[in-house]
Simulated assay, not measured.
Amino acid sequence: MIESIIEKSVKNKALLLLTLLIAAFLSFWAIRQTPLDALPDLTPPQVIVNVKYLGQSPKIIEDQIIYELTNALLATAKTKTVRAFTSYENAIVYIIFEEGTDLYWARDRVNEVIQNVSKNAPKNATIKLGPDATGIGWAFEYALTSKNRSLDDLRSIQDYLYRYALLGVEGVSEVASVGGFVKDYEVTLRQEALYKYDLSIDDLMNALSKNNNDLGGRVVLENGFEQIVQARGFARSLDEIAGITIKTVNGIPLKLSDIADVRVVPTYRSGMAELNGEGEVVGGVVVVRYKENAYKVIQAVKEKLASLHVNDVEVVTTYDRSDLITKAINNLKRALLEESIVVLAVVMLFLLHFRSALVVIIVLPLTIALTFLCMKLFGLESNIMSLGGIAIAIGAMV
């Protein structure tokens, strides 16, 4: 059979060269399109559901939400396992589906369950889907440091500038914020003032919710221009919150500052972020979307971070998986170069024939390129295991 292949190849040199050129072109395209990552994704199809119920214990969250949610999820098609973990104010539910299940099909089924369970859940509880990523989606981390800004300022910059900017990068599923303090506006009531003016906590809550809002009116045509009428009541500072009118007493407005103290306080937190033992910082964790090219996404994230400039804020990269990907690719290049040099030296030494050595040197990179083409056709990504296998195969071929 081999003799027949060789004979036909010799007789059809033009066709053989054309086939090799087409294969080389397709292989080069496959190398450019094959997703690059450092770690192989061995995780089964998995969907995460986050539950938040402010101020409640794990037992209450489990009894009022998790029990119904997990039972409904177990009845979902192709569900294999459902695991739930509850803590103070939070719960996480992992839904493992059968192998081969499309992740986005699974997310649609889980979302249907969430919509049904949410109807019976407490009003203050929120149930939402987690990011469309796998267990190895955690690909890039950074920290925000500053010499003059406080931790709550850095957290606000992270939540409202860096996070939203990075979420717009193609391939990014989620940007999680860690560390720092989340601002809360706290109203501390004076008991004697409540008794004096005959007020309840519900009265204050209703007044705050109704007054802290912008209302739209209508459009007035004036001199050929449309003037938009709008009542602005949305509070933008502590003074504006303190100036909200609660009620009128003998024709005099009773303001919130007359019966309470308003101040900014940090939200309760159960952890912190520290950088190299030098103190607390605020950080961000970038999660890459399912089936995306992790290397390209990380490069795009770094370009976006470089384009964002905030005075007295420095961005420090704390974890970058692209470095590991680059090292794996460089290792394959080095192995190919070393093996090619060894083959050239051995063939030249024993055969003293450069063309024979050239045949082997051309076949080696072409074989690797065809391997990437097959990986692309079968939906396999390039990672440490696959690149390491190719490097070993080069030695076996030689």
Rank of each mutant, 00 (worst) to 15 (best):
L351H: 09
E112G: 12
L364V: 03
V310G: 02
K304R: 15
V178F: 14
I368H: 01
W138L: 11
V113Y: 00
V220W: 14
D153F: 07
G216H: 12
Y185L: 11
P266T: 03
G216D: 12
T317G: 06
T43A: 13
G284C: 01
D203A: 03
I325E: 00
V49Q: 00
S27N: 03
A176W: 08
V285I: 15
V363Q: 12
V359T: 12
V47W: 01
D202K: 13
T126L: 10
Q64V: 07
V113T: 03
L377G: 07
T245C: 03
L21P: 02
A84F: 05
V229F: 06
V265F: 05
A357S: 09
L21F: 13
K376Y: 13
K11P: 05
L308K: 04
L221R: 13
D312E: 12
K52G: 02
L36T: 03
L39A: 08
E292L: 02
I157K: 04
G224R: 04
L189M: 07
G389C: 00
Y185A: 05
S356T: 15
I65W: 01
K247C: 06
S173K: 08
N212A: 05
P365Q: 04
L332R: 01
K376N: 12
A193L: 10
S173L: 06
S118M: 10
D102W: 06
Q56A: 10
R355P: 01
S340W: 02
K210T: 13
H353G: 04
V313I: 05
Y67Q: 12
I259V: 15
Q158N: 09
W138D: 09
Q227K: 15
L166T: 06
Y319Q: 09
R163M: 07
A133F: 06
Y319A: 08
D63F: 09
